[in-house]
Amino acid sequence: MADPNKPAIDALLADLAAAHIGATFNQFRDAGPDDLPDAPAIRLANLRSYLDERLEADVVAVGEAAGYQGMRWSGIAFTSEFDLLRWGAPYRRSSRRARPWKEPSGTIVHGVLEELDAERRVILWNTVPTHPHLPAKPLSNRRPTQGEIAAGRAFVERLIDITQPRLLIGVGRIACAALPGAQYVRHPAQSGATAFRLGMRALLATPP
């Protein structure tokens, strides 16, 4: 069956690939020295496949921003190359690194979703879908600016308008503040894993 949201998703991804969000690195447009030659296209294809697999998702969970161990390489929020290898085709790594990148927060997030059999129920996204890093330190993370949050929020709002989720979750204070109406869950980073797990279990206890 054809997906009626496909044109809107295609437009969203095309605009995301062309976006300039403050001083962030747009992993869907740009490549660095550790990237494969077609890395931006790989990451965009990963995100497209991820969304295609979640046509029936009833939850959108939004984090803060792309991180240097996760979405920067995978193209998917809270997801690392390690996760892509676990999932298999059509997902592909985009880095030249001998060992796949692995993100601690992403490991926690996917662990909970798999425990609850909710991987396909939940679309993971970020308030800032590109990578904020410290000046001259591409393998770092920094807090996004208010301007970057505002620019990124426009993409979140479009995703929400397309998918019409039953439940919107803000993972962390930044995401929750940027998205009125989102249900707050503690971010899993910085000793937040237990609170995150408890919060997600409570919110996802109700089946779709």
Rank of each mutant, 00 (worst) to 15 (best):
A18Q: 08
S191H: 12
P135A: 04
S80R: 03
P100I: 07
L85Y: 09
Q146I: 14
P4C: 08
G22F: 00
F82T: 13
A2L: 15
P7G: 07
A202T: 13
P165H: 05
A65R: 00
G181S: 05
L168Q: 01
P165E: 02
A150H: 06
L116F: 02
P33L: 13
N26P: 06
T145W: 05
S94T: 08
V128C: 02
P132G: 05
A14P: 10
V62F: 00
L113P: 00
D83M: 14
E148Q: 01
P7E: 11
R97V: 04
I162Y: 12
L159Q: 03
V109P: 09
P4K: 07
D83V: 12
T206L: 15
D35R: 04
H110Q: 04
L36R: 10
P165T: 05
R86F: 14
A154N: 13
L116T: 04
L168M: 09
G192Y: 01
V156Y: 06
R43S: 09
G147I: 06
A189R: 01
L167W: 04
E53F: 11
A182E: 01
H110S: 07
L113S: 03
P132A: 05
H110E: 05
F28H: 08
N26A: 05
R92Q: 15
I169F: 03
A61E: 00
D161F: 14
D35V: 11
P208T: 08
K6I: 14
A14I: 07
D52R: 07
A98M: 14
S94Y: 15
G199L: 02
D58C: 13
A189I: 03
P104Y: 02
L47Q: 00
A39H: 06
W73Y: 12
P188W: 08
R120G: 13
G147Y: 11
L16I: 04
V171I: 11
A65E: 03
A61L: 00
G147E: 11
A175S: 14
I162D: 07
P7A: 09
R92G: 09
D58G: 13
L124I: 02
Q27M: 12
V185D: 01
L134F: 09
A8Q: 09
R72A: 13
D3T: 01
R29V: 10
F196S: 03
L204A: 08
R186A: 10
A8G: 11
T24P: 10
S94V: 12
